[in-house]
Design a protein around this nucleic acid. Structure first.
Lengths: 204, 204
DNA sequence: ATATGACTGGACTGTCAAGTCCACTTCGGG
DNA sequence: CCCGAAGTGGACTTGACAGTCCAGTCATAT
């Protein structure tokens, strides 16, 4: 079931990547294995060679999608330890939403909505993705506390959870309205809450 | 296409209600017209008597769902004009999520994720639902300003948008984690932001 | 009472996707 | 060189679903 040769490994990866793309376009239920195979230049029996069934493939897609979303922010995450870096992170997220024409929200949340109630394994994978995301934010805030930018008594775990929620909700609203400003306003709310815990009062 | 008799009106309503239930359970794509008909004690030709096709029915479901979600909060909305009422509203939302075992997020957001990118009419209907929701929050905050509970210069439109985003994001995270506390933390963030605009400092 | 049109039921068709099967190719080790 | 396993391709089966069609029922207005 797991590929033992390089050739097989590449085949499997091609299939997962194609599946992720098709799922992003057509939704999980709307994604046919025929189309996945066509894009990966692989036939359906290859898919069943590496995966038990469609659900198994979708689990792999969920993992790949989580990784992709987090990887896309790796550079930004590194900057989260300062107020300036935090603001830059929000700016980058809004810019991304502008580029996409405010279409399509968070890929992780999309999969959750489509599969979360149907397949508990997938729900757990996506939940872990959110956890990692929140951890990065919390680590950044903790670094701001350590660096003296935030007051020591700040509850960074709560602030991180609340910030990720603002981000997710902002994405939902901007997708609904096709308006990136909805995300901007949501993130400004999160920033304002964090700002209320800053030490120096050198304007936000 | 639109029913002209009472009997037809009831049939149509039964169909929409059943469709909304099936869609909530199985998702929009997973909902078959056979099952909708079976639950509504109506055959498929009845469905096609009132709706052009499945998309047309789903549009009606989107409207019904928006109305149902907003209606379910009508009593709470009336209380939003005071800090106490605002807190009660958040408590009720968290309680609801506890009752549901933190399963299934916001029905409007779920439909958006499944159909928003596929059918623009539906996206607009759901977006309007969010608008009405945000309007109720904004009106409540404006009443708090008028009542002297919030400082006059408070940007209630922004606070309302940010609060709805926290709510939506909190629902996403609580659904992913099967943990209503994620919603609690998100809403506490929104409350803290609003609290920072209060006049009297009589503890939050 | 009956004709008209709204309303209803169920059978039928075409399409499309999941999953199975088997024959074939590639490639590395003996 | 050749054997066996890993990897590959495509045809086939089965089932489910959207959408159509037509024959029949119900309510009511005259």
């Amino acid at each position: 079931m797991l590929p033992t040769t390089d050739r097989g490994r590449l085949s499997r990866e091609r299939i997962v990547a194609s599946a992720a793309a098709v799922v992003a376009e057509k939704g999980a239920l709307g994604a046919s294995l025929d189309e996945v195979g066509a894009r990966a230049t692989a036939s359906r029996s290859q898919i069943y060679h590496y995966f038990d069934d469609k659900s198994d493939l979708l689990r792999a897609v969920a993992e790949a999608t989580s990784d992709a979303v987090l990887d896309g922010q790796r550079v930004l995450f590194a900057e989260l330890g300062t107020w300036v870096g935090l603001v830059r992170w929000t700016d980058a997220l809004v810019s991304l939403q502008v580029e996409r024409g405010a279409a399509g929200g968070c890929p992780i949340a999309n999969l959750l909505g489509q599969l979360g109630e149907r397949d508990d394994d997938i729900r757990v994978v996506l939940s872990a993705g959110f956890d990692r995301w929140e951890d990065h934010i919390r680590d950044g805030l903790a670094a701001m506390v350590a660096g003296g930018e935030l007051r020591p008594e700040s509850d960074v775990a709560w602030l991180a959870a609340s910030t990720l929620a603002s981000l997710q909700g902002g994405l939902v609203l901007s997708q609904a309205r096709r308006d990136p400003q909805a995300l901007r306003r949501a993130l400004d709310g999160a920033l304002a809450l964090i700002a209320s815990h800053r030490t120096a009062v050198e304007t936000a």
